[in-house]
């Protein structure tokens, strides 16, 4: 039994190292000076930390703009996806209506569409409508990508609020709108916040569509991708860390909801 436990810990530690060490290394690389990154072998311990690489990265053309664009696109996507998706999620959770199953199938199907399939024709449509190379274009694409998941997860969130609560509110004199606002929404709020985070991260990470739909108004990943081939290693490492940081914050905040969001609702 004791040996068994030891083996268990050993396996867990090994896997943790596989997932953790690369994160450590990219942080180490991003916080090394340019000069020490040119050395070989690279120091494996944080002996001479420096903000030089990361500040150079942040100072180079397009990075701050990319950050702001990513932020803009991410927040707008969250708002738009919630405004459109929450009512649909509520309808799925509470109503049995004709067309419910086809609608769900439609959502699943749209989620199976590769981003490229949409992006290229969309770029053409946006060129004609003057939306090309704007953050709005990217927001629309990201909302379309996030929406099926937003609807399905919010519907799971609303299913978690007992129907009897809503009925109780109505019996005690609340209109349907009031019952929703006073009783359902407050209980669904943590779940909806989780959906919002999920949507933001999806938008933050999406690179291909953002690259195809913009030329100058790049989001951060799109900017990093398009400048990849002609930038020094130090720049790429700093870019890698810059892209990852929100992810770590996201997972830290969302740990409690992860299983429900990715796990249960996907089944």
């Amino acid at each position: 039994m004791r040996r068994h436990r030891f083996g268990l810990q050993l396996a867990c530690v090994a896997i943790t190292l596989f997932f953790g060490v690369p994160l450590y290394l990219i942080a180490l690389a991003a916080f090394s000076s340019r000069e020490s990154l040119d050395r070989f072998p690279l120091p494996l311990l944080p002996t001479d930390l420096s903000a030089e690489t990361i500040t150079t990265f942040l100072g180079s053309t397009g990075v701050v703009g990319g950050y702001l664009n990513s932020l803009m696109v991410g927040l707008s996507t969250v708002v738009l996806a919630l405004v459109i998706g929450v009512p649909a999620g509520y309808a799925l959770a509470r109503h049995a209506f004709r067309g419910r199953d086809p609608y769900q199938l439609f959502l699943l199907l749209t989620r199976a569409l590769p981003i490229v399939v949409l992006s290229v024709p969309l770029a053409r449509i946006f060129l004609q409508t003057g939306l090309y190379d704007t953050t709005y274009a990217v927001t629309l694409l990201h909302t379309a990508l996030a929406l099926p998941t937003t609807v399905l997860i919010t519907s799971a969130v609303f299913v978690g609020v007992p129907r009897e609560h809503e009925e109780a509110a109505q019996v005690f004199g609340a209109s349907p709108a009031r019952a929703f606002a006073r009783v359902v929404l407050p209980q669904a709020l943590p779940g909806i916040a989780a959906v919002a985070m999920f949507t933001f991260v999806l938008s933050w990470n999406e690179v291909l569509g953002a690259t195809i739909l913009t030329l100058n108004q790049r989001t951060l990943p799109a900017h990093v991708l398009t400048t990849l081939s002609d930038s020094p290693l130090a720049y790429r490492f700093a870019g890698g860390l810059a892209l990852i940081l929100p992810a770590i914050v996201f997972v830290a905040v969302m740990r409690r909801y992860l299983l429900n969001m990715w796990g249960t609702t996907l089944r």
Binding site: Q170, V171, P186
Partner: peptide, 19 residues
């Protein structure tokens, strides 16, 4: 509608609002 019937009710699961 329920809200206009002037009734009150105790639910099986109580339906007490947790928030």
């Amino acid at each position: 509608a329920a809200r206009h019937r002037g009734i009150s009710m105790v639910f099986q699961s109580y339906a007490i609002f947790p928030h």
